[in-house]
């Protein structure tokens, strides 16, 4: 997947999905092929309802796909199989703890199921996240609730973290605490994170590879720099009769009088020259943010679907 980040631990991917499909009454997940290399942080970006959560639930064996195969840490994901989950930490935004019980109760419960539970790290996280073990879940704020769940996930030192919208609804301080703690875990290059969000900024900050999901499909998947370097936006002055040169991935986004806005998803340094050679005057050539790239990709994908 990534040229810059070779999997440091041989060829076994931390997780892979092959041809995974799942049909619900109003939603189809279609032919998902994904591979997450060991030691990487992988972002899934998509609008709400795009299928990110379903992909993650299938990876956890919580949802059985209609077709396709899933391998997690080299083992098949399945609801009847629990051994893979011993090394996977799953967090989902809609996951809840027992309201009437304390954080300490949950810590003890999870610890009893994980021989590798790291109590010292758990105590450290309590402190760092500003949580009190004796607090009941129902008294926690949204941010504290997320942090309590993450504590339960991180303290078992999972090899693979599957995090579905962990920063949703967090204030900036809590968000930074969470992101920073996540990055601490990948200091160990045997650990892998798959992280979904509809906040492109979080993904841009911490992820090595990025996958765009829209309407049940993977519409693009590349390493972070592949996206950020591959996309460019140009502002051009060109007469009405101007015909854009044939350059792969070059697309008109908008025009206003003589002003043309073009984007390209396969940028090479000679594109500007080619544009000017075609008779247009280049007014600006700008890198795009991940959010802009995401929006452009979604728009292109939906247009292609319609055709």
């Amino acid at each position: 997947m990534s040229a810059v980040l070779d999997p440091p631990l041989g060829a076994i991917a931390a997780a892979s999905l092959r041809g995974v499909s799942k049909t619900y009454r109003h939603f189809h997940l279609r032919d998902i092929d994904l591979e997450f290399a060991t030691g990487t942080v992988n972002g899934l970006i998509g609008p709400n309802g795009a299928g990110k959560s379903t992909i993650m639930r299938i990876m956890m064996g919580l949802v059985r796909p209609d077709r396709g195969t899933v391998a997690m840490l080299g083992r098949p994901a399945s609801s009847s199989e629990s051994s893979a989950k011993r090394e996977i930490g799953y967090f989902s935004e809609d996951m809840r703890l027992y309201k009437a019980e304390t954080i300490a109760f949950h810590m003890q419960f999870v610890r009893s199921l994980f021989p590798d539970w790291d109590e010292r790290y758990a105590e450290e996280l309590l402190d760092r996240f500003g949580l009190i073990a004796k607090q009941k879940i129902k008294g926690l704020s949204q941010g504290q609730r997320v942090k309590a769940l993450l504590l339960l996930v991180l303290a078992r030192r999972p090899k693979l973290l599957i995090l579905d919208e962990p920063t949703n609804g967090l204030d900036p301080v809590a968000k930074q605490e969470v992101l920073s703690e996540l990055m601490q875990t990948v200091k160990d290059e045997a650990r892998t994170i798959v992280y979904s969000s509809h906040h492109t900024q979080d993904i841009e900050q911490i992820c090595d590879t990025i996958t765009f999901v829209d309407r049940g499909r993977v519409i693009a998947s590349d390493d972070r720099d592949g996206f950020l370097n591959g996309w460019r936006r140009f502002r051009l002055q060109a007469p009405g009769s101007w015909v854009p040169p044939q350059i792969a991935g070059l697309r008109a986004e908008a025009s206003f009088g003589n002003l043309r806005v073009m984007t390209i998803d396969r940028y090479r340094p000679d594109v500007e020259e080619q544009l000017e050679a075609s008779g247009a005057t280049l007014e600006g050539s700008e890198a795009m943010t991940l959010e802009e790239i995401f929006l452009a990709t979604v728009t292109r994908g939906r247009e292609e679907c319609r055709r």
């Binding site: 809840r96 999870v110 199921l113 994980f114």
Partner: peptide
């Protein structure tokens, strides 16, 4: 209450 999602994320089979 979605507590089952939490429980099923642990190493437990159906």
């Amino acid at each position: 209450d979605m507590t089952r999602t939490f429980v099923m994320s642990l190493p437990i089979s159906l």
